[in-house]
Design a protein around this nucleic acid. Structure first.
Lengths: 107, 107
DNA sequence: ACAATAATTCGATAATTGTCAAATTCTAAA
DNA sequence: TTTAGAATTTGACAATTATCGAATTATTGT
């Protein structure tokens, strides 16, 4: 309804986000976390154990560790150490921001 | 409202899309095309001359040409030759698809 | 204290990517 | 048909990235 109602975009920040999603294994990691995040409702569950996902992928632990850092560094996911394990959940706020960027007014 | 209502994602295709947006100059190209696309309404305008954008960026013509191919290859934009010039417009259908991926049900 | 498992760090290496200069093609106009 | 401007192709090079193996750190349970 409004023309030019789009927020200016921080290019560097955005490219970092897209770069984080531009690798197959990293995207799968992200989508898996997203899926877990969505399959739970009330209850503050939404926690995803990285070890479990790892077995699905065909890459080693060091690489997964590296990828997770890219995802968190971009702000896409938030991690927390649960004892021996690492858990991750989606940063909903950033995802909403991305959704806005791609949202198109059906004129 | 519905759980697990998300379409399965073609990983390779998606990474190609995100990769296309993961470079600063390419993202600026895309956002500029997006902006032009949005500032025109009725009338099938929505055409963006690449030469004009080029002057904004600090890269040469060969690089721009290469970047444009990445954007079109990913399906993000559609180009058309208008005489001596190249014009581009947003592939709204794909953008809508991306919007869906990031859309989160506010539960 | 020790063994086992998860995760991280640290090189190293192969693959990919961004960019350019030079040469080439395409198109419009003179 | 020659010229000029726009775009593309090609080949090269530097920079970045994805991945690994080995070594290290962290945490839990015995």
């Amino acid at each position: 309804m409004k023309k030019d109602s789009r927020k200016p975009v921080d290019i560097k920040r955005m490219t970092r986000i897209f770069k984080a999603l531009s690798n197959e294994n990293r995207l799968e990691l992200f989508l898996e976390i997203l899926k877990v995040n969505e399959t739970c409702f009330e209850t503050e569950c939404a926690e995803c154990f990285i070890t479990d996902i790892m077995e699905t992928l065909s890459i080693g632990a060091p690489t997964v560790s590296h990828h997770m850092k890219e995802l968190t560094g971009a702000g896409l996911v938030i991690t927390e150490r649960k004892g021996k394990f690492l858990t991750a959940r989606i940063n909903d706020e950033l995802i909403r921001e991305l959704s806005d960027i791609f949202y198109r007014d059906k004129s």
